[in-house]
Amino acid sequence: MLNSNLLRKLDMQDLMVFIAVYEQSSVTGVSETLCVSQSTVSYCLKKLRTSFEDELFLNTRTGMRATYKATTMYGHVLKILESINLCHSGAQAFDPTQNAVTFNICAPEYFELLILPRLLRNFDFADLPVTVNVQKLETDIPADELRDGSLDLVICFGPNFHRTHKDFKSQMLVEDDLVCVFDKRATPLEPRFSLQSFVERRHVFPTPWTSDTNMVDGWLARQAHKRQIVARSNSYSAALKMITGTDFILTLPRRIQMLLANDAVFSHCEAPNGLPGFTLDMQWNEASDQDCANTWLREQVAKVCVEQGLR
């Protein structure tokens, strides 16, 4: 933010005039160098003086003499113009059409179901020679692999499901919550499970990412409750098959329920009050932050989330 509203009226030409007057000490010379009229130079100087509340340059017999404030400003204004030029030129953009590229991502099934299919279709539609290898997310983020470049991205859950690393950067991709899914023939009367009804039902627990704990049982433990798990599955689809024809309950992310739970077979209701939602986050090594290929990949993932209304 700016320290003064007066600074809002400045533009790039004003700063260019400041540098030119400082270096040349001549309004006439500045107008020739910048190809503008002397009246334009004078107008820019007036704006500069008003904005910075200082004369900046004094008109003497030997030319325009910089004030103390102008002298202290010179290096900063130079850096501003240099930064603007860097923004314009930027880093060399990644062009996936030039060479085949393979990206290695560690992610849970949630990412593979909701985001990866659209991402691959986008690559295919644009005829891009891009390969995406996905390895399953384990209990902890594979920090060493992300640091040494074996992995380009880690897609994980949040907030606070994994150990944080100060040298990693993070971006939230999706927000979601949990719903209770069951066979239509076992539909409960209530539109939302009470905590007591929730723990009285038998549960199938999907483990689409490897973890010793999960958000449901962790929350129940904090409420001094525990549920009965009759089966564990490696995928959301397998878990849905396991509850078919039973009165078992399956707690799924809402977006997964909408994607996979056929309304002809399954019903759902709201989870008990207080059961927290979660986010899907993207993490990468700080050293890869300016890597053009890695930046391009992150942009494509975020773009898919926007296209599908996930954020």
Rank of each mutant, 00 (worst) to 15 (best):
L7C: 05
L7T: 05
L10R: 02
Q13I: 11
D14P: 08
A20S: 15
Y22S: 08
Q24D: 02
T33D: 12
C35T: 12
S37T: 15
T40F: 03
Y43K: 11
K47M: 13
T62D: 07
H76T: 11
V77Q: 02
L86W: 06
C87T: 07
T97Y: 11
N99D: 13
L113I: 14
L114T: 09
L120R: 15
R121I: 10
D124P: 02
F125S: 10
F125L: 08
F125K: 14
V134F: 00
Q135H: 05
D140N: 14
P142C: 06
L151C: 12
T164L: 11
T164W: 04
K166E: 15
K169D: 07
S170E: 15
M172E: 15
L173R: 01
V181M: 06
D183Y: 03
A186R: 08
A186I: 09
F198P: 00
V199E: 05
R202E: 13
V204D: 06
W209A: 10
M215N: 02
D217G: 05
D217P: 06
W219T: 06
L220V: 07
A221N: 09
R222M: 14
Q223C: 12
Q228D: 13
V230E: 12
A231W: 02
R232K: 14
S237I: 14
T244P: 00
F248M: 08
M258L: 13
L259S: 09
A261P: 09
A261E: 09
A271H: 06
G277H: 11
F278P: 11
M282P: 00
D289Q: 13
D289I: 02
Q290V: 08
C292K: 10
A293G: 05
N294L: 08
W296D: 12
R311F: 03
